[in-house]
Design a protein around this nucleic acid. Structure first.
Lengths: 127, 127
DNA sequence: TATGGTACTAACAAAATTGTAAGTAATGGG
DNA sequence: CCCATTACTTACAATTTTGTTAGTACCATA
């Protein structure tokens, strides 16, 4: 993983900020590069490791594994291993991560507005 | 700032993901280490640079400047310079970032639930 | 002339995240 | 025995973010 240093200023700052501000805490939990995308993929049901990889262009097996591990640790996905060969592993959302689904759509709406604004701004600058 | 490379896999991935998924886009905009905290501070009105620094323990002048510059570029704060000596600069939320305020509280509520869950989990493991 | 206050910048260093490339294990089928 | 399949690991390197320290500009005031 590239282990984090327990007592770096960086780590301590993050910890303090997460304790000080709940919305920062939430954003930290879903803030990894690919996490949101993974969660969105799982919105409609279980998927296997390989399916996730195929559905998320650009992600490597390593990053997929890392992000899934963190999501699992944070109880945002659950991992179901079938004792078969070749291996089969499925991932699915947990109750707590399902509670986030409506928030995603609100964030999505905000994004659309923001993008509009950026476009407007570009036009104004051009004129 | 430590300039980003335009064409690194890293940059391109981020760009693609933001285009592919609107909620990722939103989270990117508010995902910097101190951004959320800064925005929260500004929730109740304008603040000067020095006030922000005092109100946010642990932040350095450099980080405060960097994060404010990005927020400004993304139109999430506006910067008001008074031509005085010593200088006076005030920051305030913009209409588009004010639209985020209700989302913060929802994220905050989710954080509280998640923290509860983590505590429960710790207890179960201990037993 | 020296000092203080304010909002920054610049050069550098450390830390953290992300990406690349090459493996591993287990077993059924040819 | 060799290969294919699947879900991973491992070692390393590049990139990005964050932190440290020491400046800068400006003018009023002592």
């Amino acid at each position: 993983m590239g282990r984090r240093k327990e007592n770096s200023t960086n780590s301590l700052n993050e910890k303090n900020i997460m304790e000080a501000c709940d919305s920062v805490y939430s954003i930290c939990k879903i803030g990894g590069r690919w996490k949101m995308l993974i969660l969105c993929e799982l919105k409609d049901g279980k998927l296997r490791f390989g399916e996730l990889r195929k559905n998320i262009p650009g992600i490597t097996e390593r990053m997929l594994t890392l992000q899934l591990r963190e999501l699992e640790k944070d109880m945002l996905v659950s991992r179901i291993v079938y004792p078969e060969i070749p291996p089969r592993v499925e991932y699915e959302l947990t109750p707590i991560s399902r509670q986030l689904i409506p928030i995603w759509s609100v964030l999505g709406d905000w994004a659309k507005e923001h993008k509009q604004l950026v476009i407007q701004q570009l036009k104004e600058v051009a004129v």
